[in-house]
Each structure stands twice: as structure tokens, then as C-alpha cells.
Amino acid sequence: MPFSLFVQNVLNGAGLGLLYALVAIGYTIVYGILRLINFAHGDIFMMAMFFVYYGAFLTPIPWGICAVLAIGLTILLGVTIERVGYRPLRGAPRVSGLCAAIGMSFFLENFAIVVFGGRPKPFLYPDVLDKVVIIAGIHIRAITFITPVVCVVALLGLNYLIHRTKMGLAMRAASRDFDTARVMGVDINKTVSFTFGIGSGLAAIGAILWAARYPQIHPFIGVFPGWKAFTAAVIGGIGSINGAIAGGFLIGFFTIMLVAFFPSLSGYKDVFVFVILIVTLLLKPTGLFGELE
């Protein structure tokens, strides 16, 4: 493999890995606090793409502002889903919570089919993202370059929120021990809403970059990336943000490299992700960064 192609693949893998990381964080912080697999997270990811699509398609608002508005709308959607669908069931058996999450996912997918239509749509994005940059003889699409940068900025922002703000402290406390945090005066409802907001916001950023990389969107587009992101969270250690980042990066990087070095195996890349998940559960169920219960 020539060096320039190798560099392209590395950048591609890093970008995809960081996208998975952004989505995986949404799963892991919600699971850390509520012990709930938010199956609707992949569909929130999908909705963000459609928000941008319709914003850019139907209104004269510039694409960049559309993207920001879409992130805001997605955060609102995530918070609403928690408020309407999950909060009333907080004391109920865990299986009820999982059923509610499945119901939400089912609802969002069917809502998207009815309202947006089931046929794949081309995702519009500004030409800037498509421009080819040549650095030291290596051709790189601008989006390949922008994706890791945006992701890293988002992760730094998240790090600030979690470790430097009062809300972040409340989240960490609730994640460590839900009941004790409540007794100590943490406003649990506000904290959980905030958690869903952060998760959905990161998923929206990931979704927009994803759609710019693979510009075709349909109502089921969130299902498989969502599952892989959750797998990444499990591999990294569910509940741990650093674990989700590491797991997401690993999975994205691994799949790109697998296809780059063994093109004949490209049909099986998702099977390999599944195998990694199984091996993780067999050898180290707590994941790379997980704590023992």
C-alpha cells in the first residue's frame, strides 16, 4: 500500500472512530445514570440528519446555521423523549424501561417512514466539505480532515462540561450512586434531562458529519451505527466516557483498516465487530475502562 493511501486510511479511520465515539458517549452516559439502554439513540441520530436535510431543502437558511439549529432541535428531541417516554417509568422494573426504549425507537422509525418517506434521500452539504486538499502529495477530502477536528473540539467541550461545571459534577455523582446523589440534594430530573441533552447533541454532531461522509439518508440509517456505537461503549466499559471514546475509536479504526488491508473481507466488517463484542464479553466483561460492580 503506498504511503499516501495509508495516510488517507488512517485519517478516515480516525474520523469514523471519533464519530462512533460521539454516538457511544450518548449511550454510555445514559446507561451510567439510569441503567437503561436507550435504543432510541440511533433514531435520534437519524432524526438529526433529517432536520438538516429539511432545513437546507425547504428554507433559505444557510447550511451552517441549519446544522446548528438541527443540533438544538435534536437536543430538544432527546430531552422530550426522556421526559415523555422514560421518566414515568423510572421506578418500574428494568424490563419496562427497555420496552419503553424499544417502543420509542419503533415509533421514531415509523414516524420517519410516514413523514419523511422510506426511500433513501441524497443529503445536501456545502461544496466546501467536498474540496480536495493536497498536503505533501496526499489528496484528502476536506470532510475527512474536518471530521476529526470537530469531534475533538466536541470531546474537549464535553470534558469541560463533565469536569468543570456543577451539572457535570451532578452527572458524575448520579452515575456513581443514583440514590445517594438524590439524598445529597442533586436534582435528579434536571441531571437526567441534561444527560439526555448532551448525548443527543453529540449524536447530532456525529450524524451531520456522518451524513456528509456518506450522503444518503433513510429512516433506518441510525440502526446499525447505533448498534455499533453501543458495542463500542460495551467494549470500552459501559458507563465510562473515556471507555466509550476508546471503544468507538477502536471500532471505527479497525473496520476502516480491515477493509483497507483485506478488501476481500469488506462484506464481513460488521461480523468482525460482533466477534469483538463476544470476545470482550468472554474475556473482560467490564470492558477496557469499566469498573467492577
Binding site: G103, M104, F106, F107, F111
Partner: peptide, 8 residues
């Protein structure tokens, strides 16, 4: 869609 609203 009707069924999913019913489940919820």
C-alpha cells in the same frame, strides 16, 4: 406508526 403509538 399506529401500532408503535399503541405500544407507547
Amino acid at each position: 406508526l399506529v401500532i408503535s403509538i399503541l405500544i407507547l
